[in-house]
Protein backbone atom coordinates (compact mmCIF):
# COMPACT_ATOMS: atom_id res chain seq x y z
CA UNK A 1 0.00 0.00 0.00
CA UNK A 2 1.54 3.36 -0.96
CA UNK A 3 2.27 5.79 1.85
CA UNK A 4 2.17 9.58 1.69
CA UNK A 5 5.47 11.37 1.45
CA UNK A 6 6.60 12.27 4.92
CA UNK A 7 3.99 10.08 6.57
CA UNK A 8 4.84 9.23 10.15
CA UNK A 9 4.47 5.77 11.54
CA UNK A 10 2.34 5.33 14.63
CA UNK A 11 3.11 2.72 17.22
CA UNK A 12 0.61 0.05 18.12
CA UNK A 13 -2.53 -0.96 16.39
CA UNK A 14 -2.92 2.09 14.17
CA UNK A 15 0.36 1.39 12.38
CA UNK A 16 -1.51 -0.16 9.51
CA UNK A 17 -3.59 2.94 8.78
CA UNK A 18 -2.69 4.85 5.66
CA UNK A 19 -1.63 8.33 6.82
CA UNK A 20 -2.34 9.83 3.41
CA UNK A 21 -6.02 9.00 3.93
CA UNK A 22 -6.16 9.19 7.73
CA UNK A 23 -7.00 12.88 7.89
CA UNK A 24 -10.59 14.19 8.01
CA UNK A 25 -9.97 16.64 5.17
CA UNK A 26 -8.35 14.11 2.84
CA UNK A 27 -10.94 11.49 3.71
CA UNK A 28 -13.63 14.01 2.78
CA UNK A 29 -11.91 14.80 -0.53
CA UNK A 30 -11.63 11.10 -1.35
CA UNK A 31 -15.25 10.47 -0.38
CA UNK A 32 -16.38 13.23 -2.75
CA UNK A 33 -14.15 11.97 -5.55
CA UNK A 34 -15.38 8.43 -5.01
CA UNK A 35 -18.95 9.45 -5.92
CA UNK A 36 -18.02 11.51 -8.99
CA UNK A 37 -16.22 10.60 -12.16
CA UNK A 38 -14.14 13.79 -11.93
CA UNK A 39 -14.43 17.19 -10.32
CA UNK A 40 -12.61 20.49 -10.46
CA UNK A 41 -10.91 22.51 -7.76
CA UNK A 42 -13.84 24.90 -7.24
CA UNK A 43 -16.28 22.03 -6.77
CA UNK A 44 -14.03 20.41 -4.16
CA UNK A 45 -13.59 23.79 -2.48
CA UNK A 46 -17.37 24.22 -2.13
CA UNK A 47 -18.00 20.67 -1.02
CA UNK A 48 -15.21 20.39 1.53
CA UNK A 49 -15.38 23.90 2.99
CA UNK A 50 -11.56 24.03 3.06
CA UNK A 51 -9.55 27.11 2.18
CA UNK A 52 -7.81 27.21 -1.20
CA UNK A 53 -4.40 26.73 0.39
CA UNK A 54 -5.55 23.81 2.53
CA UNK A 55 -7.29 22.08 -0.33
CA UNK A 56 -4.28 22.56 -2.56
CA UNK A 57 -1.96 21.09 0.04
CA UNK A 58 -4.23 18.08 0.73
CA UNK A 59 -4.54 17.43 -2.99
CA UNK A 60 -0.75 17.47 -3.26
CA UNK A 61 -0.48 14.81 -0.54
CA UNK A 62 -3.04 12.63 -2.29
CA UNK A 63 -1.38 13.13 -5.65
CA UNK A 64 2.04 12.27 -4.26
CA UNK A 65 0.54 9.16 -2.67
CA UNK A 66 -0.63 8.20 -6.17
CA UNK A 67 -4.32 8.13 -5.27
CA UNK A 68 -5.59 10.90 -7.51
CA UNK A 69 -4.84 12.18 -11.01
CA UNK A 70 -4.66 15.94 -11.37
CA UNK A 71 -4.94 17.55 -14.79
CA UNK A 72 -4.79 21.22 -15.54
CA UNK A 73 -6.56 22.64 -18.56
CA UNK A 74 -7.80 25.98 -19.84
CA UNK A 75 -11.48 26.57 -20.52
CA UNK A 76 -12.05 29.87 -22.29
CA UNK A 77 -8.68 31.10 -21.01
CA UNK A 78 -9.63 30.26 -17.41
CA UNK A 79 -7.47 27.59 -15.72
CA UNK A 80 -9.32 24.52 -14.52
CA UNK A 81 -7.81 21.84 -12.33
CA UNK A 82 -9.57 18.55 -12.81
CA UNK A 83 -9.17 15.84 -10.20
CA UNK A 84 -10.04 12.19 -10.54
CA UNK A 85 -9.76 9.27 -8.13
CA UNK A 86 -7.63 6.62 -9.82
CA UNK A 87 -7.75 2.82 -9.36
CA UNK A 88 -4.91 2.95 -6.79
CA UNK A 89 -6.94 5.48 -4.81
CA UNK A 90 -10.02 3.26 -4.90
CA UNK A 91 -7.98 0.30 -3.65
CA UNK A 92 -6.39 2.47 -0.95
CA UNK A 93 -9.83 3.54 0.32
CA UNK A 94 -10.93 -0.08 0.46
CA UNK A 95 -7.75 -1.05 2.34
CA UNK A 96 -8.16 1.89 4.70
CA UNK A 97 -11.70 0.86 5.43
CA UNK A 98 -10.65 -2.74 6.19
CA UNK A 99 -7.74 -1.61 8.37
CA UNK A 100 -9.92 0.89 10.24
CA UNK A 101 -12.44 -1.86 10.88
CA UNK A 102 -9.66 -4.04 12.31
CA UNK A 103 -8.46 -1.19 14.52
CA UNK A 104 -11.95 -0.56 15.86
CA UNK A 105 -12.53 -4.28 16.44
CA UNK A 106 -9.21 -4.45 18.30
CA UNK A 107 -10.07 -1.43 20.43
CA UNK A 108 -13.48 -2.81 21.33
CA UNK A 109 -11.95 -6.16 22.30
CA UNK A 110 -9.33 -4.62 24.60
Amino acid sequence: MPKAKGAESDPGIIDGLDRAIHSPARLKILAILSVAERADFTFLLNQTGLTRGNLSSHLSVLEEAGYIDVNKEFVERVPRTLVRLNPAGKTAIQNYRDNMQDVLDELLRS
Binding site: V35, A36, E37, A39, D40, T42, F43, V78, R80, L82
Partner: peptide, 13 residues
Protein backbone atom coordinates in the same frame (compact mmCIF):
# COMPACT_ATOMS: atom_id res chain seq x y z
CA UNK B 1 -23.10 27.48 -12.43
CA UNK B 2 -19.66 26.15 -13.28
CA UNK B 3 -17.60 29.22 -12.26
CA UNK B 4 -19.38 29.39 -8.90
CA UNK B 5 -20.20 25.82 -7.99
CA UNK B 6 -17.38 24.17 -9.86
CA UNK B 7 -17.36 21.51 -12.51
CA UNK B 8 -18.32 17.95 -11.67
CA UNK B 9 -19.00 14.95 -13.83
CA UNK B 10 -21.00 12.39 -11.91
CA UNK B 11 -21.05 9.57 -14.42
CA UNK B 12 -18.60 8.07 -16.84
CA UNK B 13 -18.72 9.39 -20.40
Amino acid sequence: TVPRFGFVQFDSE
